[in-house]
């Protein structure tokens, strides 16, 4: 499972597929204060990203993968 849920944290790692979107959303719904760690995430499906963009959680770390860092982080942070 590329996503692991802790008490107050959600860790996304490796490649997050479309199946991960629903558990992620459910966890964010039940634990809205969770901090999201995306350090190890190299690929996230659009559906996963969509959940994150809509939820605007607090990020404890941002993805380091080149494409995500460059182009997706602004959307994740809701900077626009």
């Amino acid at each position: 499972m590329p996503i692991s849920f802790g008490k107050n944290s959600i860790v996304l790692e490796g490649e997050c597929t479309v199946e991960e979107a629903l558990p992620l959303l459910e966890h964010l719904q039940s634990h809205p204060k969770s901090k999201v760690c995306m350090k190890g995430c190299v690929l996230a499906h659009s559906a996963v990203l969509q959940v994150l963009i809509a939820a605007r959680p607090v990020y404890s770390s941002l993805p380091e993968e080149e494409f995500m860092r460059r182009w997706l982080v602004p959307a994740l942070k809701g900077a626009q």
Binding site: L25, Q50, A55, W71, L72, A75, Q80
Partner: peptide, 22 residues
């Protein structure tokens, strides 16, 4: 690259994760 919602994001409780609104 710009990634945006087609409409304002709904409340998290009513969000459908599998309906693409990007």
């Amino acid at each position: 690259l710009l990634l945006e919602g087609t409409e304002p994001w709904p409340d998290l409780d009513t969000l459908d994760p599998y309906r693409c609104a990007l």
